[in-house]
């Protein structure tokens, strides 16, 4: 069964449509990354799916229900949100924040039952925050705070979780940690996660499906398929960089200088050669193996053929080249 389905959805602000005729689907256990250039409508789509802004046309169906016909309480049992809105509350513990996810199920006073407590404990455990349960949210790191907000979404007990740039403002280890966490949760809880992100590398490795938003529409597919059809290149590619056809990494096109140089590689120095090549390209030296100028690259160092000097670091080598 589809957890989420949109029918001919048109999104935008006022009379200005950003995307038209979207037919999107999400199933249980899906981790879907919503990506695209700035202004392609990532946030607008996510806000529309969350009912935070109205659809200009078409329908958003969650668990076979048209969300336009549901009130806020009914919606809150179908999907939960992780937003970019800053949570800055004095004197609120991680546990109290996570407990707020139980809001749709508690009585008027918000009292937590034993079952609620168990659900909260489990969510804290799922995001590895049990040891910080009694810390104040203003005293934990940004990565921990984001995990606490995700735990809040888990306690809300919805089949769908929508996340708006959950890795923004985090450092690299935390970005990877959050993506891994979501990947693990989608498998262990069976929930469907839809997140917008600028992290192409992570999205390519983690997502079941990519919704690639371009000014001309949304391309949907597995990351591998989209890569092979060149969709990424046409959505993001510019003169300045391209995606590696094999590993999907992004390569920046460098400036082209007048100097050319050849690299002679000895055995065991493949890594040295790759990094040397990168350094040379960055400073504007083109690598051309027919060039008369040669660098002998060995695991021990780099030898410039014309004067025979051996340099142990690329930095020294470059200094020597530029001195001549």
């Amino acid at each position: 069964m589809n957890i989420l389905k949109t029918e001919n959805l048109t999104i935008g602000y006022g009379a200005k449509a950003v995307q038209r005729g979207l037919n999107l689907e999400a199933q249980a256990r899906d981790l879907i990354c919503l990506t695209g250039t700035n202004g392609s409508g990532k946030s607008t789509l996510l806000r529309t799916l969350a009912g935070l802004q109205p659809a200009l046309d078409g329908k958003v169906m969650i668990a076979n229900k048209d969300i336009a016909s549901l009130n806020v309480h009914q919606r809150s049992t179908l999907f939960s949100l992780v937003l970019t809105d800053d949570i800055d509350i004095e004197r609120l513990t991680v546990r109290e924040l996570v407990a707020m996810g139980r809001f749709p199920y508690t009585n008027w006073a918000g009292s937590l039952s034993k079952k609620d407590d168990e659900i909260i404990d489990k969510a804290l455990k799922d995001v590895h925050l049990s040891h910080k349960a009694d810390s104040m949210i203003n005293h934990i790191s940004d990565g921990e705070k984001q995990r606490a907000v995700i735990a809040k979404a888990l306690t809300q007990d919805t089949p769908l979780v929508l996340l708006d740039e959950p890795t923004a403002h985090l450092d690299l280890p935390n970005r990877i940690e959050i993506m891994l966490l979501l990947r693990r949760l989608s498998v262990s809880t069976g929930k469907s996660f839809i997140l917008s992100t600028h992290e192409l590398d992570l999205a390519l490795q983690m997502a079941d499906k990519i919704w690639l938003m371009t000014p001309s529409g949304v391309e949907i597919g597995m990351p591998e398929d989209l890569m092979l059809t060149g969709s990424f290149q046409s959505a993001f590619g510019s003169e300045s960089f391209s995606f590696d056809a094999i590993d999907g990494h992004c390569h920046i096109h460098q400036i082209k200088g007048p100097m050319e140089i050849a690299i002679v590689v000895s055995e065991g120095a493949e890594a040295h050669e790759a990094w040397l090549r990168r350094a040379l390209i960055r400073v504007g030296i083109q690598v051309n193996n027919t060039s008369e100028k040669k660098i002998h690259c060995t695991p021990q160092g780099y030898q410039l053929e014309e004067n025979g000097k051996v340099h142990t670091t690329i930095e020294e080598l470059l200094k020597n080249i530029f001195e001549h």
């Binding site: 969350a50 935070l52 806020v72 919606r75 939960s80 809105d85 949570i87 996810g101 809001f103």
Partner: peptide, 24 residues
């Protein structure tokens, strides 16, 4: 006293409150 529960969630801001089912 009657609105103490939605008051707590409003601390998170309007969007989160909406997401939790509060009639903001």
């Amino acid at each position: 006293f009657a609105i103490q529960k939605p008051l707590n969630v409003l601390l998170l801001g309007e969007n989160y409150a909406l997401g939790l089912g509060v009639n903001v």
